[in-house]
């Protein structure tokens, strides 16, 4: 996932500028002293300067983006694995309150293991046993209110 330092640096310049711009409407303290805006402005400014330097150094060193890797992404099984992780966590966030931890947690683990070539039966058993154990430890012993969803336990 390598990107050229020139681009990375430029990204930080932009981020710094955005942070600075975001503070323009902030209120000031008595007698016009800067208040809430002081630190974000310093940080944004420094970020832009550092980013600029990284960009310059990258340009001089002819640092380039690994374009081949980027273009081949959709064919890379490892990349799909990473996407499954992302999708799993996202699905968890949006569905767990409806389905409950016992179902959603087991589904996420199962999908991931299945994708990582664990035999499906084994994956299903491990997912259910492990997830129930986690639920018992966190929800029952530590009293973390894991969402119950459609279940009651």
């Amino acid at each position: 996932m390598k990107i050229s330092d020139t681009v990375v640096g430029a990204g930080f310049v932009a981020a710094g500028a955005l942070i600075f711009a975001g503070t323009l409407n902030y209120p000031t303290l008595e007698a016009g002293h800067p208040g809430p805006s002081l630190f974000p402005r310093i940080l944004g400014g420094l970020m832009a300067v550092f980013g600029g330097l990284v960009s310059l150094l990258g340009l001089r060193a002819r640092d380039v983006t690994d374009e081949v890797a980027w273009l081949r992404l959709h064919k890379n099984p490892a990349f799909i694995n990473a996407l499954v992780v992302l999708a799993g966590v996202l699905a968890y966030i949006f569905l767990v309150e409806h389905l409950g931890f016992l179902i959603m947690g087991a589904l996420v683990i199962f999908t991931l293991m299945w994708r990582l070539q664990v035999r499906p039966v084994k994956a299903a058993v491990v997912a259910i046993v492990f997830n129930t154990l986690v639920h018992f430890l966190f929800a029952k012993v530590l009293r973390v209110p894991l969402p119950l969803g459609i279940l009651w336990w």
Partner: peptide
């Protein structure tokens, strides 16, 4: 491959447990 999946679940539950908030996940 099994361990990584289990660790992910611990990460999710651990992040949730701090404030009991899905926002933190």
């Amino acid at each position: 491959n099994i361990l990584m999946s289990a660790i992910l679940m611990f990460c999710i539950v651990g992040s949730f447990a701090i404030n009991n908030s899905l926002f933190d996940v």
